[in-house]
Design a binder for these strands. Structure first.
Length: 554
RNA sequence: UGGGGUGUCGCCAAGCGGCAAGGCACCGGGUUUUGAUCCCGGCAUUCGGAGGUUCGAAUCCUCCCACCCCAGCCA
């Protein structure tokens, strides 16, 4: 796989650390909590962590930060691994789990207590909040703060033994209740949760907090550069404090970067989960969601997502990336690599009156306009064809470069035809167009030197196949559905999915493999559905439309 | 009104004292059996603002302004 890893400030830091000998090898990690599916924001982190390790010949671990059993599940640990692999990355060694280090964390907690750096606190959640003070006022010491070491040790052991109820006691670090950094006001290290854990079962009833776990996990695994998002910057002093006060095997350092924000979309596990739970979308892998599995089902390729991550860069400023950049990344990849094919979304019958009903010509068409190595396929050409209803008008201005009554148009990969008359249906709409072919125009212009201004796609009515096509649109029309006062659930686009049950495809398309990408010429990029597509009942999802700069006329 | 951050084109982003890369978007023009692609051209005398240092500043100093994060026994 190509290892693009464009330079950024982290790249520079690592290069410097390697050059100075501060570290001899770079070791990073991607540390998701298995409490939801990965989304495009995680893709940025994955590309960053794995990409940096790759760029410097180091290693990158996949580690589940599973310290809160109440929110986690095995379904997520499975999907996360699948998504990371699908994106094209392989972690170093086995999958790691914070939960595998629980005993070590506990021993270290005991160590902290013995050194007088931690104590068991009896304040309940509400009292703890009061004692913590506010952003502008210092907190007050807990009445338990000066508890003797011996008593703390006893209480901690009993917390572990399950003698106390959830929430009744916690273990806290003894740092500084007056610190302007809230994270240093005697942060909680352990809480009681009488809950089974998806990895450790009922072994524990006390679980470490993120702060008491993350740095130590990094130290145990020999992580050299622990990369996280900006909101953890205030936690860095605590991260360092714990490492300094514990006999850890290595000294990782934390660095922060700005998380990805995309306009017109929501990227937060909580909100994505709400859309899934309330049935607004069909599941975590709904093609309208910016989840990795959703984008996969939509037809995005790992390469396009990686390319997108390279395009947006990595900095410490938090901005909002225009989805147009994501759309460009996928169009760019698919334009280069997707085979072309023809599909009519709104079939309008065209009868070629000068063409025998019992005749079929098999025309060959290249699978790609510039890459001959992608081969060609054959198309059945018959008396009855379907073209898209939008590609015909009884009358139109010169700007309309498609089929018009009495005028000519080129059928893509086939001949030129001229529309003679229209047959109206009972509903007053055009039901059929009757036309005739212009002799000897396959692969060449008409003998009279005229050149049709337009080219439209078509599919044989008798040789083609019916298909179901799903046309996706943005889930939100609002640029910032979850910003400020906005209730993102109320801003969902009710027409984000349009089901087309009678699209018409050229026969070769029925043989498509699930997840195969195509460009349906003049329409956009589509993918055979990962789960529902079959030769008997073809199903395609529109990944993204073609760029369209045509300003519609009259 | 505490602490921690960030401010370079509509968006992302290079730049680190020597005179504003690149990408996306957009606007022209050319090619084209996809109104796609491709090609060519345009797009910041200016770097949040005001002072200062310097021959010279987006880059150094001072003050100011705006925005983001922190008061979960979430991560």
């Amino acid at each position: 796989m190509e290892s693009t890893s464009p330079s950024n400030f982290l790249h520079a830091i690592i290069a410097r650390d390697l050059a100075s000998g501060r570290v001899s090898e770079v070791v990073t990690r991607f540390p998701p909590e298995p409490n939801g599916y990965l989304h495009v924001g995680h893709a940025k982190s994955i590309c960053l962590n794995f990409g940096l390790a790759q760029a410097f010949g180091g290693r990158c671990n996949l580690r589940f930060d599973d310290t809160n059993p109440g929110k986690e599940s095995p379904e997520y640990v499975a999907s996360i691994q699948e998504d990371v692999r699908w994106l094209g990355f392989e972690w170093s060694g086995p999958v790691r789990y914070a939960s595998a280090y629980f005993q070590q964390f506990y021993d270290w907690a005991v160590h902290l207590v013995e050194q007088g750096h931690a104590y068991v606190c009896d304040l309940d959640a509400e009292q703890a909040r009061e004692y913590r003070g506010t952003l502008t006022q210092p907190g007050r010491n807990s009445p338990c703060r000066e508890r003797p070491v011996r008593e703390n040790l006893d209480l901690l052991a009993r917390m572990k033994a399950g003698e106390f109820d959830d929430g009744s006691r916690v273990l806290r670090a003894k740092i500084d209740m007056a610190s302007p950094n809230m994270n240093l006001r005697d942060p909680i290290l352990y809480r009681i949760r009488k809950l089974a854990h998806h990895q450790t079962g009922s072994d524990w009833c006390i679980y470490p907090t993120y702060d008491f776990a993350h740095g130590q996990e990094d130290a145990i695994e020999g992580i050299t550069h622990s990369i996280c998002t900006l909101e953890f910057e205030d936690h860095r002093p605590l991260y360092d404090w714990l490492l300094e006060h514990l006999p850890v095997p290595s000294r990782p350092r934390q660095y922060e970067f700005g998380r990805l924000n995309l306009n017109y979309t929501v990227t937060s596990k909580r909100k994505l989960g709400q859309l899934v739970d309330e049935g607004v979308v069909d599941g975590w892998d709904d093609p309208r969601l910016p989840t990795i599995s959703g984008m996969r089902r939509r037809g995005f390729t790992p390469r396009a997502i990686r390319r997108f991550c390279d395009m947006i860069g990595v900095t410490r400023s938090d901005g909002v990336v225009d989805v147009a950049m994501l759309e460009h990344a996928i169009r760019d990849d698919l334009n280069e690599n997707a085979p072309r094919a023809m599909c009519v979304l709104r079939p309008l019958k065209v009868v070629l009156t000068d063409y025998p009903a019992d005749r079929t010509d098999w025309l060959t068409a290249p699978n790609h306009p510039t890459r001959a190595e992608l081969g060609q396929r054959t198309l059945p050409f018959t008396r009855e064809l379907y073209i898209d209803a939008d590609d015909f008008r009884e009358a139109a201005s010169k700007k309309f470069k498609r089929l018009v009554l009495g005028k000519r148009v080129r059928l893509r990969n086939a001949c030129v035809i001229e529309a003679d008359e229209v047959v109206m249906g009972g509903d007053g709409a055009v039901a059929e167009v009757r036309a005739h072919t212009i002799a000897d125009t396959i692969g060449k212009d008409p003998a009279d030197g005229s050149k049709p201004r337009g080219v439209i796609h078509w599919v044989s009515a008798t040789g083609g196949r019916r298909a179901r096509v799903r046309l996706y649109d943005r889930l939100f029309h609002h640029q910032a559905p979850d910003r400020g006062e906005n209730d993102f659930m109320a801003l969902v686009n009710p027409d984000s999915l349009q089901l087309v049950s009678d699209a018409w495809i050229e026969p070769s398309l029925a043989e498509a493999l699930p997840e195969q990408n195509f460009q349906f010429e003049r329409e956009g990029y589509f993918v055979a559905d990962r789960y529902e597509h079959s030769a008997e009942a073809p199903v395609f999802n529109r990944t993204i439309g073609l760029r369209d700069t045509w300003n519609d006329g009259p």
